[in-house]
């Protein structure tokens, strides 16, 4: 058996996530928030549109970096959590490859994107395909799934770079297709720098 995404999603897609008595959601060694996707999309779209052309790359880099750091730290919290151990680890038969599949299943369960790994050369290259993701609802021009881009890179580093927290900035991720740009799915290619 290997990690089955839909089984993980059904077990980990916690529907009723709410703040505790302090109005906070501490989980996976981070503070979690549960917000309308419209906020994240509004800010990304408006910030990119607000800057002159020579500043656009810096804004895009900042948006991807935001997701990358979130994915690296929260991703580590997820794959070392009791929930991950109880739901995903019994299905792990192929080591790091299956941990990575499990991480993307959680990625899907949290509402980030209905996505999965379509090509994997261990420690070298990975292609992610997303058939439904909230960033494709945003306005703007060009490929703009900044969040999936950053998190894909982070998860690959958690699986194949130096152990946490020393494995950052080992790989690059490039978005090559996007629903928001007229393609039928989003595609993200992670490769060594």
């Amino acid at each position: 058996m290997t990690v089955l995404r839909d089984t993980v999603v059904k077990n980990l897609a916690e529907i009723e996530v709410k703040g505790d008595q302090d109005g906070l959601i501490p989980a996976f060694n981070v503070l979690v928030n549960n917000l309308p996707t419209a906020f994240w999309n509004n800010f990304a779209e408006r910030m990119v549109a607000a800057v002159p052309a020579d500043q656009r790359a810096a804004v895009v880099e900042g948006l991807v970096l935001s997701a990358y750091e979130c994915g690296y730290h929260t991703g580590y919290g997820i794959i070392t959590s009791d929930e991950f151990k109880s739901v995903v680890e019994p299905m792990v038969t192929e080591g790091a490859k299956d941990v990575l599949r499990g991480a993307f299943a959680v990625f899907t369960a949290w509402g980030w994107a209905k996505s999965g790994i379509v090509q994997l050369k261990e420690g070298e290259r990975m292609v992610i395909r997303a058939v439904d993701y909230y960033e494709s609802d945003s306005g703007g021009e060009g490929l703009r799934a900044y969040m999936i881009n950053g998190i894909s890179k982070a998860f690959f580093e958690l699986a194949y770079a130096s152990p946490y927290p020393d494995g950052m900035n080992t790989f690059n991720c490039k978005q090559t297709k996007g629903i928001e740009n007229g393609d039928s799915f989003g595609e993200f290619v992670v490769e060594k720098k």
Partner: peptide
Amino acid sequence: TYRHYLNGELMVLHCHHYMALYTKLAEDM
């Protein structure tokens, strides 16, 4: 679609790193 909704609004879970870095990007800009 595996999308989450609350009273009809499309929702997503993120963490404080994401929020802090979005805030910092706004500050930097």
